[in-house]
């Protein structure tokens, strides 16, 4: 079967957007995982950067094949999460958010100052190794896994933590273990997203994993809603498509983009899809 040229052109034109939708969906899930246990941890962009940089170095310096690089790309972010986890997870609310943002900024300084990471010039000439099958395959697998976890007993404990941490602890939920688990899962998902993104866009730079992307990733999950994994993915889709849909408005498009976020939060407080996971009564 051959694809007609117009369809081929169409797919190619929006190829990057299609990649970005999938990758940002994974990032939204990475945010969802921590929000689901009530943790406002904003390290997703930093984890993504670790996944991206480490995977590109594996591809370019070690010459590893992509089937090995992709799973290994979770390694650096997960190790980082384990190291910072203990002291950081004692914090909550704003303090946790700012601490994780601060860690991201420290990593940015490392990328800028260590020659291996290319400094301000970043790493370029990355071969295109990832494709939509991998991106969407992983996205679907992640949604499914999170859905199943959410519907299980673990999910019930997570929800209890989100509603009231102290009460959950009294009920016998091991808070630290759940928080750590969520952080590690979040790091792994973001690392995969970073690896996939790097291997479809030929260039990565130190400015892509700082404060702004951290906040953007948070807005994916919040806009979509944090009741179900699929809702946060929908949020990512909306916010990724918006700037492209509004392209005709040129310099006013970001204004409208912001207004849409404001209106959505004010009038849809539970997100665009304010549902909860259904679970059989215990």
């Amino acid at each position: 079967m051959t694809i007609p040229p117009w369809l081929d052109d169409f797919l190619w034109t929006y190829g990057n957007l299609v990649h970005a939708l999938g990758v940002n969906g994974l990032l939204a899930l990475s945010m969802y995982v921590v929000l689901a246990v009530g943790q406002l941890s904003l390290g997703q962009a930093a984890f993504m950067g670790l996944g991206a940089y480490s995977s590109v170095l594996m591809t370019q310096q070690l010459g590893l094949p992509f089937w090995a690089v992709l799973p290994l790309s979770v390694l650096a972010p997960v190790v980082f999460a384990l190291v910072i986890g203990l002291p950081t997870l004692r914090l909550s609310g704003v303090y946790l958010a700012i601490a994780t943002i601060g860690l991201g900024e420290v990593l940015r300084a490392v990328y800028l100052n260590v020659d291996l990471f290319g400094g301000a010039l970043g790493l370029s000439g990355i071969p295109e190794r990832a494709d939509n099958t991998m991106i969407y395959g992983l996205l679907l697998a992640a949604i499914l896994a999170l859905w199943l976890v959410g519907r299980s007993g673990i999910g019930r404990a997570m929800e209890a933590m989100r509603e009231d941490e102290t009460a959950a602890a009294v009920m016998g939920v091991n808070l630290l273990r759940y928080k750590m688990g969520a952080l590690v899962a979040s790091a792994a998902l973001a690392g995969l997203a970073g690896c996939l993104n790097a291997h479809v866009s030929s260039f990565i730079g130190p400015g892509e994993y700082g404060f702004e992307p951290a906040v953007t990733i948070l807005s994916y999950a919040l806009l979509g809603g944090i009741g179900t994994p699929i809702a946060s993915v929908v949020g990512a889709f909306i916010l990724t498509l918006l700037p492209e849909l509004l392209r005709e408005l040129s310099d006013l498009r970001l204004v409208l983009n912001g207004v849409i976020i404001v209106v959505a939060v004010l009038f849809l407080p539970g997100g665009v899809l304010p549902f909860r996971l259904r679970r059989r009564a215990a």
Partner: peptide, 11 residues
């Protein structure tokens, strides 16, 4: 947080 984030972008 979210609402002020949107507002920052717009403003």
């Amino acid at each position: 947080l979210m609402v002020t984030l949107g507002a920052v972008l717009a403003l």
